Computed example of a mutant assay.
Amino acid sequence: MINLRGIAAFLALLGAAAESHAAGVTIGVVAPQNGPLALLGAQIAAGAGFEIQQSGNTLVAINETCEDNSGAAVADALVNAKVQVAVGFLCSETLEGALPKLKDANIPAITVSVRSRILMEDALKNGWPLFRAAPADGAEAAKVIEVILKDWAADPIALIEDGTIHGRELTEAVRNALEQNGLKPVFTDTYRPGQEQQIALVRRLKRAGATRVFIGGDRNDVAVIARDAKAENIQLSILGGDAMRAADQPLPLDAGVRAVALPEYAILPEGTAAADALRAKGIEPEGYVLPSLAAALIAGQAGQAAAAAGKPLQEALLDATFQTPVGTIAFTGAHELSQNPYRLLEWRGNGFFPPAAPTQ
């Protein structure tokens, strides 16, 4: 696995090459290089830097502090380096200050992290060149709702959550959508999280007649509920959210539990080749590595297309569909991903994978 020192050396080599010979599309990579977010920044730098090097483009690495009022300086650095497009942007604080100046310089910004709907609304209203290569707020709930309406509509459904803001809001969004579609859960509850056992809860689910349960809670709570339902011989189909992407401890999750979550792209068909190439360079394709690689690939291809057609790079981003290691990506007119990146996944003991197609 590449470490932070390795990332710094890697970027230094690329930067030195860029200074001596700028080639292809000049792409800014904006990510934290130190401080508490340096590990995430290293993932962004590793993925984007690998793709930029492979494609023969030019990398300009810009440190992102994620502090309030830091964005203008980031934008100035990008403009002074004559970048054509920038990727990364872990924090909304950076974009809030950078986008007005990036608009004046015609430099699109592709974020792999920021989910704020308000920021995108402001960007569209002001003509700021922001593109989101990450899920927007509400995308997780939308996918959960889609899955439940498609697969569970004819079954007795329970909705339970752990009382946290995210768990409550996610479960409430699902409940509202069910009611709008004429469906009423047979059981709803807020459970106490972090308990060693949930036998009373699973018995109440049985008494209510629930056979399908959506849980707005963390992975360990879901594991406890699944274990106790199995011990009580209560047949429950369990679905969780993106919080299920966590360490499989202290209690292992039962195989067959499902989650609506962002996939581990490295184990999916579209991501394996890039993952293998990264590992050959000592880079583990975790976290933001493959999404950032995809963002840099999109930036490079859009830059080339814009130059060939003699049109603004922002138009090229909107006009094309890109085949990337995280799947097919296209942007809507609102600069959002055209397809929801959340997927229905199933735990198989060593990872979340797409469920097998039902047998006929």
Results as ranks from 00 to 15, higher is better:
N3W: 09
A8R: 15
L14C: 03
L14R: 14
G15H: 00
A16T: 03
S20D: 15
G24K: 04
V25K: 09
G28V: 02
G35R: 05
L37I: 00
Q43R: 10
F50N: 11
I62F: 11
N63R: 07
N63S: 13
C66M: 08
E67T: 12
A75D: 12
L78P: 07
V79W: 10
A81C: 11
C91L: 07
E93G: 04
E96D: 14
A98T: 04
P100R: 03
I107N: 10
T111D: 07
E121F: 05
A123T: 01
L124R: 14
G127R: 05
W128P: 01
P129K: 06
A133C: 05
P135G: 11
K143R: 15
L149E: 07
L149G: 09
K150Q: 10
I157E: 02
A158M: 10
A158D: 01
L159R: 06
L159C: 07
H166R: 14
R168P: 00
E172L: 14
A177K: 13
G182Y: 10
F187A: 10
F187N: 04
T188P: 02
T190E: 15
T190R: 14
T190C: 10
P193M: 06
E196L: 14
G209E: 07
T211L: 00
T211W: 04
F214T: 05
G216E: 12
G217P: 02
V224W: 05
A229K: 02
A231R: 14
A243K: 15
R245A: 13
G256D: 10
V257D: 02
A259K: 04
E264S: 15
P269M: 05
T272A: 12
G287W: 01
L290D: 09
A296R: 01
L297H: 10
Q301N: 14
A302K: 01
A308H: 12
L313V: 11
L313R: 11
L317Q: 02
A320W: 05
P325C: 06
G327W: 08
R343W: 07
L344K: 07
L345C: 03
W347M: 02
W347G: 09
R348A: 15
P355E: 09
P355L: 05
A357D: 13
